[in-house]
Design a protein around this nucleic acid. Structure first.
Length: 301
DNA sequence: CCTCTATGGCGAA
DNA sequence: TCGCCCTAGAGGC
């Protein structure tokens, strides 16, 4: 594998999609692109935009929109294990279930004439849960359902506060709700709650405005770092493997984390064993000491 | 070989 | 709350 998306498997949370949008723009924006579906399942959609200009790719939360001329969009959602790898050089034969392939520059011009090019890029989409051709209004409808995205400069964190402050649902569930806030997945959820010392089951309505504001700002910084590095790193400087003299995390998740997938292992801060529980079908991870159970004023009396 | 699992989200009960 | 869809790697026999 080559190109900016190579390396350890990326976790498809919001940062992955924003990074992917950047990469697609670097390689394909402003160019006539070949679009094909080697797997065969999306041939008709691919044919609609094959040989037309790719205008730009945009990410909103975990959704990716690749814009082409004539107001056509490819809507991609990677789901649990989709990948969209961008490579430089002549396209390798497609292996496995390549659902969609972009090749640029096109070997044929708009008039069908062959183009002479010095370099090519190609991108293979595999395992995605969504890959649809949509219109401007369909794209707008998808975006309208999404909450503010920490990676978009025009996002309004007050909308997040409004949703969290009037909900009795656990903060751990609200953070994963893409209509509350777009782009957070299981890793950022677990890590954000740890960094803010919040028990995952604490009701959203018991949080103070300042806490929610601090979490938003933290997410903006953590996820921006994730876009530039392509991995999720959430431990503070004093808790890095180097600072603590422990072995770096060595699995396919890439980044240094406090609690995500560390069930039974000692907390980097207090040494307590990390706990887990399933909430709405997803694994929660937290430190019972650093993230103590919330006791309301009524319950404490 | 087989089974299990995961970073997500949808629709049916 | 459950089952289902998509893929790939790990571990068991």
């Amino acid at each position: 594998m080559s190109g900016p998306l190579s390396g350890p498997a990326e976790m498809p949370e919001g940062h992955t999609l924003h990074r992917l949008a950047q990469s697609i723009n670097e390689h394909f924006a402003g160019q006539v692109v070949e679009v094909s579906s080697p797997q065969g399942r999306f041939v008709e959609s691919a044919n609609l935009v094959d040989g037309t200009g790719l205008v730009d790719a945009q990410a909103w939360g975990k959704h990716l929109f690749i814009g082409f001329e004539a107001h056509r969009w490819i809507h991609v959602h990677l789901g649990l294990y989709g990948t969209f790898d961008v490579h430089t050089g002549p396209p390798a034969p497609s292996v496995g279930q390549v659902r969609l392939r972009l090749v640029s520059p096109s070997r044929k011009g708009p008039d069908g004439a062959a183009l002479t090019v010095s370099s090519t890029s190609y991108a293979d989409l595999r395992g995605a849960t969504t890959c649809d051709m949509i219109t401007d209004s369909q794209r707008a409808a998808v975006i309208a359902r999404l909450g503010p995205d920490p990676l978009r400069a025009d996002s309004d964190p007050d909308r997040v506060w409004a949703r969290i402050s009037r909900s009795r649902a656990p903060i751990g569930a609200l953070l994963m709700d893409q209509t509350v806030l777009a782009g957070v997945g299981n890793v950022y959820r677990a890590e954000l709650l740890f960094r803010h010392r919040l028990h995952p089951l604490r009701p959203g309505s018991t949080l103070r405005r300042g806490q929610v504001g601090a979490m938003w700002q933290d997410l903006v910084e953590l996820m921006r770092a994730g876009v530039s590095t392509g991995r999720v790193d959430t431990v503070r400087e004093e808790h890095t493997p180097e600072a603590m003299g422990r072995e770096p995390r060595r699995d396919d998740h890439g980044g240094e984390v406090y609690v995500y997938r560390r069930l039974g292992q000692p907390c980097h801060v207090c040494g307590s064993k990390v706990r887990t529980e399933v909430l709405a079908g997803r694994n929660l991870f937290w430190c019972p000491k650093c993230q103590p159970k919330f006791r309301s004023r009524a319950a404490a009396q």
